[in-house]
Design a protein around this nucleic acid. Structure first.
Lengths: 243, 243
DNA sequence: GCAAAAGTGTTCTTCGTACACCCATGT
DNA sequence: ACATGGGTGTACGAAGAACACTTTTGC
């Protein structure tokens, strides 16, 4: 792995806050970088010289999740002065770590990766069941993290999650994109619980149903018999407009 | 002027959509670059290695407007593949232009400036009366442009204005920032005309007043006697919270 | 007094919220 | 039968749109 020779844009990175949803909780995909001294990070990568930034973000997402066609939204650029691994970790611990040597980085690569970076941040919405998290050459681990119990993170990555969540909430008020976090079909209760997880507050059951149905973007399918001792809920699916 | 030796982040630029307001029309500040073959551009610049991106944006704005303390908002990154002056203008016309030679650019600088760039875009709101537009070393001219009659622009700069306008509209729904475009004191009618220019639609006079006053962010000052044959309107000023 | 434009008040509609009720399902 | 959770309908209140009216100013 040699960064310097890969035809990448220097000092510019992309980081992704990948939202998933499971058991009524919002999660984000986090990685532990090999050279991060045990700290976690949002999955990220770099931009090839002949690659658009949105394309790069899609590629990075595909590398980590195995998914294509992910809902993706640019939301902020982080670029404070002195924003470099060297400044946070102290270059000594990095240079001497056995992990770094295992990656096969040379001096130029180390300089490259520890330079000051500006990071373009995207958030992504995925169906957590479809994702098979994969580590990249830089990752020691990759895991779903509960957004309310985030571990220590490198640089300003801890700020990215709340910023992404705020952007998600705003977009959600305008476009109905929450279904990107759910399987193809779902019950009204499941959709409501998702909203409650995102906005961290409860909605009245009946009014929620009314509001969503009035939007006219769901189609009602057959009932879902859960085996529970109650009325079977309908399944819904998002109308594919112009499909 | 030597870009290569200025300790700038390569391939990364900042462009600003600077909104001003005059005669019931929304304007943006545009520059004509020396080497742009007559095309216009949004005012922009580059980021020093020891400088945060927001700081850089403020510096660039101050260079062109003479103002400090400008309302500034990051709204989008433009970074398609092949986004370079060389691709749009054809490097020949650039290299041979007399204007370029006047700037005193050497080969390295030309390569630098004609490379592929990713641009972080901000929009800014200014009181047009306070601005004294200044050209930089790269500008042949600088002028206020009517947003509905924009000239031909370099790269994707023509997309920046509508994108900035959309971001402005969205932010305006949440925060009351429109006053940044007005002088310190203004009448309710002036504020309404500004809103109408931004949203490109009319609002009912009385309801507009009620809605704005209900927000409780304006303080009413003395009346403004215009000499016209009608009731004198009040002047208003935005409350400086915690001033 | 009159025209022009500012300020204010009143009704009507619409939207969101709260409350209530009925229905299907498995034990 | 009944407990459980799903679906729907109605009533209330707040917020916004439409309309009407009064007030001030210079001629």
């Amino acid at each position: 792995m040699e960064f310097a020779n890969q035809n990448l844009i220097p000092q510019l990175s992309i980081d992704c806050v990948i939202f998933g949803y499971q058991e009524c909780k919002l999660k984000v995909l986090g990685t532990k970088l090999i050279f991060s001294d045990g700290l976690w990070a949002m999955p990220g990568g770099f931009i090839h010289q002949d690659e658009g930034i949105d394309t790069a973000a899609k590629r990075i997402l595909e590398e980590r999740t195995g998914l294509t066609n992910i809902y993706l939204q640019q939301f902020k650029v982080f670029g404070e002065a002195g924003r470099s691994q060297a400044n946070y970790l102290g270059s000594n611990s990095m240079l001497e770590s056995a992990a770094i040597r295992k990656m096969g980085l040379n001096e130029a690569d180390l300089a490259w990766i520890s330079s000051r970076f500006v990071s373009i941040c995207y958030y992504a919405l995925v169906d957590i069941n479809k994702v098979k998290p994969r580590t990249s050459y830089m990752d020691a681990a990759i895991n779903w993290l509960d957004i309310n119990q985030l571990p220590k993170m490198i640089l300003d990555h801890a700020e990215m999650v709340p910023a992404a969540l705020e952007a998600l909430r705003q977009n959600l008020d305008q476009k109905l994109i929450a279904y990107e976090l759910l399987p193809e079909t779902f019950t009204m209760r499941e959709l409501q619980e998702l909203y409650e997880a995102i906005f961290e507050k409860d909605f009245p059951r009946n009014n929620f149903q009314k509001k969503i149905l009035d939007l006219n973007v769901l189609e009602r399918l057959e009932k879902k018999f859960t085996g529970a001792a109650n009325k079977a809920p309908y399944l819904y699916r998002f109308k594919r407009l112009l499909s």
